[in-house]
């Protein structure tokens, strides 16, 4: 079971989170055309290796967060809040280990 670092609460077990999909795809502007929305909704890379994904800390602070995870090894490479820069300290020792 993965140990994910919530940037708000610290490292927690995977059971506290819901997977939230590919974080490299941006939701288009509402006025964007059909093709742009089609690509955003359906087209995915499915990489083998590092991948940034959304998770939501549903059992804790309810925040959407980003986790950079190696899909091949399950190694956690970085984490971050819903927006803004990500930290590359995967253990989150900067935070509180709760």
């Amino acid at each position: 079971m993965l140990r994910l670092t919530c940037p708000h609460c610290g490292p927690r077990d995977q059971v506290e989170f819901n997977y939230g999909g590919d974080a490299t795809v941006a939701v288009p502007d509402l006025a964007a055309d059909e093709q742009t929305w089609f690509d955003a909704v359906y087209i995915r890379e499915n990489p083998r290796g590092p991948h940034t994904e959304f998770w939501q800390h549903v059992a804790g602070c309810r925040q959407w967060i980003r986790i950079k995870r190696n899909t091949q090894t399950h190694e956690i490479l970085a984490y971050g809040a819903a927006t803004g820069p990500m930290s590359d300290d995967p253990t989150g020792n900067g935070g509180t280990d709760k």
Binding site: N18, G20, V27, F54, Q56, Q63, W64, T83
Partner: peptide, 13 residues
């Protein structure tokens, strides 16, 4: 609820 949180936190902060 989770989807609304997604829009507010990620898409339209």
């Amino acid at each position: 609820m989770a989807k609304m949180e997604y829009y507010l936190q990620v898409v339209w902060p």
